[in-house]
Design a protein around this nucleic acid. Structure first.
Length: 735
DNA sequence: ATTAGTGGTGTTTTT
DNA sequence: CACCACTAAT
């Protein structure tokens, strides 16, 4: 099929057609790696080297997986359902559902998201009287997750002191509780799977034989356990094809090990490494800036992106006095773009942390610009949704104490703390789950009637799961649980009710998609005794799993054109004509928590690299002198990353630190304007040097003449008020 | 038993 | 600022 391979450059073609048992593709940003991956899969199938059945492709996000399936089905008229394409978590979930017996999990085990996990940890601590102050739940969560990322159970962990002993003890108790309640956290999905394949030789052989071609995207973001899992799945008869870019490794905090790239070469005896360095996405100035920036990292394999496109526009640097005016600057630029017949959904605004979106949203709303926020509070993480799902979870699995505690008194039905304690006592006595204990708990008065009603509600739900469709069950749940009524009486409840209705809708969509899948799978996978379809006829368990693994981004979208707001992390893998990269300030980006060691700083720089390389045509970078964060104003220095971008690639705004906005773009030839007059050419926002305190930024000024005082935020000494006639302030090069 | 109100605290990035 | 845990008042 020549058309399949048309328009690929030499390296891409070589990658697509490689016959190595293990190959490594180092693919720079925008070098067409998704295209290479999808084309390779299509090519393998089209040339009959394998059937869809023999493909295992791992991606980093569900979104990327969908994109890949979509593209393949556009190239080839094949049934993509036979392939295993998904995230590590999604694929492990699939495997565990099929082999729940072998790993000792209930058929409809529940998946805990981060928030669920944290509340289980808190419950464990309370149960065992562990001080929540001395042993912060967050820290324990971190301990558990890091351990699992390395593939370690609690008894495999070395305890160096009393503190680590106690923390690890909680890990053990936590695991015990999860097992008892039939719930698994994200790390557990992977670890169980790993152990299953490690210990069960028959299954391991089966999957090794089945997956003739393993393809891994974003290899630099795999953690130790995922890496080990790949080693188990690969054997001397299968091929493995890894695509990665060490410069885009930005998930170190989650256990990602970019060293896996190097280890891979040895452990899998990679005979062929192909570098994709031609960039098809960004114009020259943008690419030059990215290359220059990333060269400041010591620890990298090294590569340089190039483009045959022209230089394009310079990067535009916006400087604002406050976060609000940063937002206003951006809006002003967007409006001039809009006039230029730009489509808004090709424009994105990035920020380092979710908290920064508020100011932007506020300003955009005020300006009447439509926008869509990715990440932050996701659909399935909203409280009303979690409440509704908890009813379903409890109906599905009576052992799920977490779900029980969430809804036993929400909406309030007169079963308070005292009653729950009573139930808990019975549960401990009889060694059963809370819900089971309810039937043997004697309460008095109103509570007793309420509890009976609650039990019959859950039982009713359970029976409805068999007779009614998924969406009907959800609809019944939100009405009869009293959730709708409750939010009706709340003053801000309208949005929540809308979300609950949206959940019913999500259930309908899920039904439609999965009824199709079911037929497809049975038709194509009938060959294998291990690949039978799980949970016959009842979609609820898979819907609940989907709700935990899928952020549910696509739920709220109505398809209209809108600006896209997201964190830099969320932007990975995406591209936009125009990108606004905001908050380039010391402490924010790079984030202050990452400044302690070089590896942290290098990861921040890679994050910046990812951000820059998202832009195709136009890139704006902005920073503000002052910013409201956590309820107080902070004064930050401009980010060090700004200095790492060559001046020739940057154009500065000619409107500095003013709140009066011009009608036109700030980058058209306007005369420079002077503001914030202080003696000796000083002004607010200027970077200055003081003999004793070092370098800082002038953030405020007051008084006149000899009394003029300025407040300077020093890099190493914080905010200081200085009388200008005494303090000798020297202006520094830039500005 | 429930609620409203207070005070103290912690804040990056995510499957 | 937003989220909790705790207390006092219904």
């Amino acid at each position: 099929m020549t058309s399949l391979l048309e328009n690929l450059n030499n390296e891409q073609l070589e990658a697509v057609k490689t016959s190595s048992a293990a190959s490594l593709i180092l693919a720079g940003a925008g070098s067409g790696k998704t295209r290479v991956l999808t084309t390779r899969i299509a090519w393998l199938i089209d040339t009959q080297q394998t059937s869809p059945h023999g493909i295992l492709a791992v991606t980093f996000t569900n979104k990327a997986a969908q994109e890949m399936i979509f593209r393949i089905s556009n190239i080839l008229p094949i049934n993509t359902r036979g392939m295993w394409i998904g995230t590590f978590h999604g694929l492990c979930n699939r495997l565990l559902r099929q082999h729940h017996k072998e790993v000792g999990l209930p058929q409809s085990f529940q998946i805990l998201d981060s928030a669920d996990q944290l509340s289980v940890i808190k419950r464990v601590q309370k149960k065992h009287n562990v001080d929540l102050e001395k042993y912060p739940p967050k820290q324990i969560q971190y301990h558990i997750n890091s351990a699992k990322d390395l593939g370690l159970r609690y008894h495999q962990i070395e305890e160096t002191d009393d503190f680590s002993h106690e923390i690890n003890k909680i890990y053990g108790k936590y695991q015990e509780l999860c097992d008892k309640e039939g719930v698994v956290d994200f790390g557990e999905l992977l670890l169980r799977c790993y152990e299953l394949l490690k210990l069960n030789q028959v299954l391991r052989k089966h999957y090794q034989t089945r997956f003739k071609h393993i393809l891994v995207d974003e290899f630099q973001d795999t953690n130790q356990l995922q890496y080990n899992l790949l080693r188990l799945l690969h054997n001397n008869k299968s091929s493995i094809f890894a695509v990665g870019d060490d410069d885009q490794s930005i998930y170190g905090f989650r256990g990602a090990r970019s060293n896996n790239l190097k280890d891979y070469v040895n452990d899998f005896q990679v005979s062929e490494t192909i570098k994709l360095e031609q960039n098809y996405r960004s114009h020259g100035h943008i690419l030059d800036a990215a290359n220059a920036l990333i060269q400041n990292n010591i620890n990298r394999l090294g590569k340089n992106l190039w483009t045959s496109d022209g230089k394009g526009n310079q990067i535009k640097l916006l400087e604002a006095d406050s976060d609000q005016n940063e937002a206003n600057f951006i809006i002003n630029e967007i409006k001039t773009l809009e006039a230029d017949d730009y489509s808004l959904d090709n424009v994105a605004i990035f920020y380092r942390s979710n908290a920064q979106s508020r100011t932007l949203e506020h300003a955009l709303f005020g300006a009447g610009l439509p926008y869509r926020v990715y990440g932050g509070l996701r659909f399935f993480e909203r409280q009303e949704i979690k409440h509704a799902l908890a009813y379903l979870r409890l109906a599905m699995s009576h052992d799920d104490d977490g779900a029980f505690l969430r809804i036993i008194n929400f909406p309030s039905r007169g079963i308070g703390q005292k009653s729950v304690e009573k139930i808990n006592e019975i549960a401990i006595q009889n060694n059963v789950a809370l819900y089971t204990a309810c039937r043997d708990t004697k309460l008095t008065g109103k509570a007793e009637i309420s509890l009976e009603r609650f039990i019959s509600l859950i039982d009713k739900l359970r029976s409805l799961c068999i007779t009614k469709s998924l969406s009907e069950v959800i609809e019944f749940t939100i009405n009869v649980s009293g959730l709708i009524e409750y939010y009706n009486n709340e003053k801000d409840g309208i949005d929540r009710i809308e979300n609950l209705r949206e959940l019913v809708n999500a259930g309908m969509v899920f039904e439609a998609e999965n009824t199709l899948t079911r037929v497809d799978i049975t038709a194509s996978d009938a060959s294998s005794k291990f690949d039978s379809v799980q949970d016959e006829g009842n979609l609820l368990p898979s819907f609940l799993a989907y709700a935990s693994l899928e952020s549910g981004e696509h739920q709220a979208s109505d398809g209209s054109k809108a600006l896209q707001l997201m964190t830099v992390h969320a932007a990975k893998g995406l591209e936009f004509d125009t990108v606004f990269l905001t908050g380039l300030e010391e402490g924010l980006f790079p984030h202050e928590n990452s400044l302690n060691d070089t590896s942290g700083l290098e990861e921040e720089r890679r994050l910046m690299y990812v951000a820059i390389t998202r832009a195709k045509k136009t890139l704006f970078i902005s920073h503000a002198q002052s910013r409201m964060l956590h309820g107080q104003t902070r004064w930050n220095m401009p980010s060090r990353f700004l200095e790492e971008i060559p001046g020739e690639n940057v154009q500065k705004s000619n409107v500095e630190f003013t709140s009066i906005l011009p009608r036109t773009s700030q980058f058209e030839d306007l005369p420079p304007n002077g503001k914030n007059k202080l003696p000796n050419g000083l002004r607010i926002g200027l970077t200055v040097e003081h003999g004793k305190f070092g370098v800082g930024v002038i953030v405020q000024a007051e008084g006149q003449g000899n009394d003029t005082r300025v407040q300077v935020n020093f890099e190493n000494f914080g905010n200081k008020w200085l009388v200008l006639s005494f303090a000798k302030l020297k202006t520094i090069g830039k500005n």
